[in-house]
Simulated assay, not measured.
Amino acid sequence: MAAGGAGAWWWTRSDEASGPVSCSTLLADARIQDALGSSFRTSMSCSELGEAMKKAAVGDEAGVHTETQAQAMRDILQSTDDALTTSGQKSIESSLRLPLAQLIADYTPDTYEIFKALDADYVKHASDDKPWSDSSGVHMAVWDDTLIRVTRAVADNPDAYAYVRDAQTRHAARVLIDIPRSADGVTLATPAAGNASALGALDAVAQDVTKDASSQAATEWTKDVVTALKRSAPAPVPHYGADPVGYIRGTWAAQLSPAAAGVVPKDFTEQGVQLLDLWAKGRADGFKPSENLRKDCRNSQSERYGDTLDTLKKASAGKLALGPSVPGPAGVATPGSA
């Protein structure tokens, strides 16, 4: 996804006025210096820093990492979050937004679990301060508020936000496809509601980006996100039997449309249910999600939205324990109601 357009320009100019976290601030952090290793130079430009971060944390194969790369990713996220919370800013230098979004996307199996906030292993390993390995490969964990704030920092660039959302959509589709066709009860509800929870965190990021913007700027941001998601989706949409992930992702993206200014699009806030319905339709075996299952997905997405929005409202939040999503506090708007 290429950055650009009037919407991206406005967000860049707005952040320059309010003072985003600078590249020099990150370069002064010893954790960034260690993560970059031999690539580090004090005179690096922002674009060079972004490329060096990707070189340090991304492997030769998408989504596959060594423990050294995963440690670099963890250090990059934590040092960026510390710079944000120390400065009281919500944004970072514009040249770093897309590279950091690409990092978050490359670690989607991990960032999905962190956004979802339901996996106990990620609680344990966020405290361990080290990556770990299991049968599926190498993983890294940070506290969920850290990932939320860094994602918010990159999201001023609509292409960067779309990059993260598209990666999470693809992963959510894979989660559904991996559910056995005979599954019911908890074995069906847990992954479906987990998808919705992870997507609810991204709804809150979108709401936080647009809530204080002018009507025109908020509208442009949402329009640019939708355009980027449509552009990145497969076209024409493949048949489910040939490419189930492409079918779910492409069909969802094809029907996207921008919302009113300052309102998170309904296709975002209903995405957990929509992906579930598309999976059921693609299976073509007569399975139809129950209304209770669809309600569970809506509730999970809405509750995670409220919890995440509350995190973003805190100028200096403590480390939040990952765990089951809980309803946002009284007064927090539900998705689409702002």
Rank of each mutant, 00 (worst) to 15 (best):
G4V: 14
G5R: 05
G7W: 07
D15S: 14
D15A: 12
A17V: 14
S18H: 13
G19L: 07
C23M: 11
D29V: 02
R31T: 04
Q33D: 12
F40S: 10
S43L: 08
M44C: 09
C46E: 13
E51K: 08
A52H: 04
A52W: 03
A52I: 04
A56N: 07
A57F: 03
V58M: 02
A62K: 04
V64W: 05
Q69A: 08
D75P: 02
D75A: 14
T85R: 14
K90I: 09
S91L: 05
S94Y: 15
L96R: 03
R97G: 02
R97Q: 14
L98P: 08
I104Q: 02
D106I: 09
T111D: 03
E113C: 09
E113P: 01
F115V: 06
L118F: 15
V123C: 13
H125L: 07
A126R: 00
S127P: 00
S127I: 03
D134H: 12
V138C: 13
H139G: 04
D144L: 12
D144E: 15
D145I: 01
D145A: 03
T146L: 01
V150D: 01
D156A: 12
N157P: 12
A162K: 01
R165I: 13
A172S: 12
I179K: 02
P180W: 05
S182R: 10
A189S: 07
G194W: 01
N195K: 01
A196E: 01
D203H: 03
A204Y: 04
A206R: 03
A206I: 06
A206W: 06
V209L: 03
K211R: 15
K211Y: 10
A217T: 10
T219P: 05
D224L: 12
T227N: 09
H239W: 12
Y240D: 00
Y240T: 03
D243S: 08
V245T: 09
V245S: 06
G246N: 06
G246K: 00
W252K: 01
S257M: 10
A259N: 09
A261K: 06
V263F: 02
P265G: 10
T269C: 09
T269Y: 14
E270P: 07
V273R: 02
Q274K: 09
L275C: 05
L276E: 01
D277Y: 02
R283W: 05
A284E: 09
D285N: 07
K288A: 08
K288P: 04
L293I: 14
D296Q: 02
C297K: 04
R298V: 05
R304M: 13
R304A: 14
G306T: 07
S316E: 14
G323D: 11
P324I: 04
P324T: 10
S325W: 09
V326G: 13
P329I: 13
A333F: 15
A333S: 15
T334M: 13
T334A: 11
